[in-house]
């Protein structure tokens, strides 16, 4: 895989992680806001309280899932950087061999060393691929969590409509919740597609 491709994953991972972190924080705060409203308005909003609680718990789960995401992003990047590092060794030997060939010198140890680096790189690429697959799995798990969260948002909208009369701004809170969840959903969906593309390319490469 070329370096531009790798830098693209790096950038995409950085952006996705930032978006998720920010949106999860947002989700958590919306949920907290809802719970404050529920506490403040007492029993009248008990139904919404259950939703807010569920929303907040799911937000915590999402946070947990997102941290697993990071656990595979960093190794993936490190693995690719190792490949880059070792590729530079291999290239160095390859270049020197060609230069020596130009002077009619053949050094068999150089050839062996170059081959050794190639083998190391192939092994490392296999490792990187495994990490990539794991990362995609983690992303999919996060997507499931988001789907659950979207369901809670819908329930929340219904509850909010039911407790319209209490004067608490639940409709707005529900809408904000929905928007925060949608932001994460879109970001993670895009990231998933990018990773799938890279996986596809890697498979072809092997």
């Amino acid at each position: 895989m070329n370096i531009q491709r790798i830098m693209m994953i790096v950038d995409a991972s950085y952006h996705t992680r930032r978006t998720i972190e920010h949106s999860l924080r947002e989700i958590d705060r919306r949920a907290l806001n809802a719970m404050v409203l529920v506490k403040r308005h007492g029993k009248a909003l008990a139904g919404y309280g259950v939703v807010a609680q569920a929303f907040r718990e799911r937000a915590a789960n999402l946070k947990e899932a997102a941290s697993h995401l990071q656990e595979s992003i960093a190794p993936l990047i490190q693995a690719h950087m190792c490949i880059l590092q070792h590729r530079s060794y291999a290239d160095l030997f390859h270049r020197k061999m060609q230069e020596m060939y130009h002077y009619d010198i053949i050094c068999p140890t150089f050839v062996r060393t170059e081959k050794t680096w190639e083998r190391v790189i192939i092994a490392e690429e296999a490792v990187a691929l495994t990490i990539l697959r794991q990362l995609i799995k983690n992303v999919e798990k996060l997507q499931e969590g988001i789907a659950e969260q979207e369901y809670v948002v819908i329930i929340g909208r219904i509850e909010a409509a039911l407790s319209e009369g209490t004067g608490a701004p639940l409709m707005r809170v529900s809408r904000d919740m929905g928007m925060a969840v949608a932001t994460v959903r879109d970001a993670i969906w895009k990231y998933h597609n990018q990773l799938e593309e890279i996986l596809h390319e890697s498979n072809i490469g092997i």
Binding site: R29, L32, N33, V36, L37, K39, R40, P169
Partner: peptide
């Protein structure tokens, strides 16, 4: 105290 809070923003 939550009793003092109207909302978070």
């Amino acid at each position: 105290p939550i009793s003092a809070i109207d909302s978070l923003t």
